[in-house]
Design a protein around this nucleic acid. Sequence first.
DNA 1: TGGTGAAGGCGTACGGCGTACACCTGGACT
DNA 2: AGTCCAGGTGTACGCCGTACGCCTTCACCA
Lengths: 248, 248
Amino acid sequence: MSSGRVSPHREPGRGGTAERAESRRRTPLNRDRVLRAAVSLADAAGIEALSMRNLAQELGVVPMALYKHVANKEELLDGMIDVVVGEIELTVHGAGWKDGIRQRILLARQALLRHRWASHVIESRTNASPVILDYMNSLIGMFRAGGFSVDLTHHVMHALGSRMWGFTQEVFPTPPPPTDPDVLAAMFSQLAAQYPYIIEIASARSHDEESAVGQGCDDQFEFEFSLDVLLDRFEQLHQQGWSSTTHP
Amino acid sequence: MSSGRVSPHREPGRGGTAERAESRRRTPLNRDRVLRAAVSLADAAGIEALSMRNLAQELGVVPMALYKHVANKEELLDGMIDVVVGEIELTVHGAGWKDGIRQRILLARQALLRHRWASHVIESRTNASPVILDYMNSLIGMFRAGGFSVDLTHHVMHALGSRMWGFTQEVFPTPPPPTDPDVLAAMFSQLAAQYPYIIEIASARSHDEESAVGQGCDDQFEFEFSLDVLLDRFEQLHQQGWSSTTHP
DNA sequence: TGGTGAAGGCGTACGGCGTACACCTGGACT
DNA sequence: AGTCCAGGTGTACGCCGTACGCCTTCACCA
């Protein structure tokens, strides 16, 4: 694809007509275009396909050209996270801190879900950019506005952890459900003997589905359940005036 | 280092005396030794220093030799996690599900803390080994034994998430505290203007310490706080007979 | 006792990665 | 007209995981 790409420097390209064709890619690359292209590439081909070389090719440019706009790949990833986090809508809905925070986090979740690689990348980041700090600061502010003490807010933010970005690390393995029904049945009975409780749970959540094992859960439900567990308990602690000094 | 290493194949080595010197490394490598060495290497030098080449060198062997014992690096990482998870003490302490689970998870945390790379690796795994399934199965069993319904147990395990391994993804950036006091003060006032709430929190938790900003939190306290938030709320939901069908 | 087969270590090689470094070029500003 | 420099180029280096074929060793059995 995009086979008609030629190095623009070789052609004088002064002719008014030909210039138009080149104009798009001679627009000097800038940091923003690089980040956006990186996000698109990761969206389309997965984060593991995002190499400096692939990204450069996508932009019709030689790999080293990127280094004029980002210091290195780490900084590229930081910038990509900024783009995603920047998409989080910061308007406040709902009444009261609890509803407001709930809605805010669910909006964050939507942004993160549009870029499935983002949760993995965000967890690998070690430096917080202003965009990240803005988000955190405003979230903290919502607790404070709800009357939470500085102390409680601090611990509560820790307890939220990565859930403040709207995702839960899926440490529950959802292995590929084998299609062959015989194989599935055999595997099922063997697993049932060895891991009865896991099978019990996996089988139970067949509300609508009759397909016994696997099949995956309703991620959105699980997320909201977990979020509410946290928020509801936060509320209780707040109401009973919890403090780390009185409850060590 | 280890300069005296020579290919054993070149020397007949039949002489009884010289054989002893070689005996240690001619002990045929096996999967277990490979995994253990990998864990040690990651412990000592960090997970990013763990390459097949480095690991091979550590074992006095050529890189490709490892592939006779592990299929590829992914499987190596899986195996390393098995080693770590296998270190989790599965004896049950405390009375009642809540205490039992709390203790169990804190023991898991200890194992994970002995291998700081493990939390990052465990999150990147996509396949659950029998060792992992064993741990999960037994944890689920503790909820069930405590009278939790299959339904509630399922959601509760999701809510635990990676905390069931005893770690919390530290999405809170603890940037390096600049040593120069002047720089620190300047940075402080600038941050205070832009992220007042963050600064408020960061400054507050100076119980024992007087050093204003940064400095990191008491991880263990934060972990236990978060764990208790979850377990306490789980208990309430259990007592009030929560069910996903009645509380959609 | 000699032959054989498998287990396990070896060597070479390939394609991909991030990126250091020197170079070139076109356009803006003096 | 001359200078500067932002920004794109080309080459090269040292890592990485790992495919493939070879060679040694040794247990086993005829």
